[in-house]
Design a protein around this nucleic acid. Structure first.
Length: 154
DNA sequence: GCCAACGTTGGC
DNA sequence: GCCAACGTTGGC
């Protein structure tokens, strides 16, 4: 399958991902059940990921990545010092899961503005009215269309 | 900073 | 189970 995953570049940009050990980061901080369930139930190692920059000057797809692990507990939920701390989570019954995400390649930015202009992308979850989900599935045709716009060979 | 849209919480 | 209040997201 294919996915779009939002990251605030102030938190973890595509360059931060590239600079991480083995160009891989644990996708910490997801605190939405639907997004968690995608990671827990539907993601498979090797799935393609559109790495999206959100809440920034130039929102858009900034690179390609892949799912690099199965789901496991997000350690930040147990850390009282973390902004992602969840007092109701315990190590015995963790509430939040994550997957590791590995860089495939940085790309030229495909701006959100451009994506909205493209009819072939109109079905993307990201572009639906009121959509806020930080992880959304991407269909094969949507994936192919994005790669074409990025100038990346499929 | 604004605000629309959505998710969560908690009283009842 | 309902639903109002509140908090968050995220583009603009």
């Amino acid at each position: 399958m294919f996915w779009l995953m939002k990251s605030e570049p102030a938190e973890c940009s595509i360059d931060d991902l590239a600079a991480a050990p083995q160009a891989t980061v644990p996708w910490v901080g997801v605190r939405n059940y639907q997004a968690r369930n995608f990671m827990r139930d539907a993601m498979r190692v090797g799935d393609g990921v559109l790495f999206y920059h959100s809440s920034c000057a130039e929102p858009g797809v900034a690179g390609l990545a892949r799912v690099a692990s199965t789901a496991y507990p997000d350690p930040t939920q147990f850390d009282p010092a973390s902004p992602y701390f969840d007092a109701k989570a315990t190590r015995e019954t963790p509430r939040w899961l994550l997957v590791d995400v590995a860089l495939v390649q940085k790309t030229p930015l495909l701006p959100l503005r451009t994506m909205r202009e493209r009819p072939e992308l109109a079905t993307m979850g990201l572009l639906q009215r009121g959509s806020r989900l930080s992880i959304t599935p991407v269909s094969r045709p949507e994936w192919d269309a994005v790669l074409r716009l990025l100038g990346v060979p499929g």
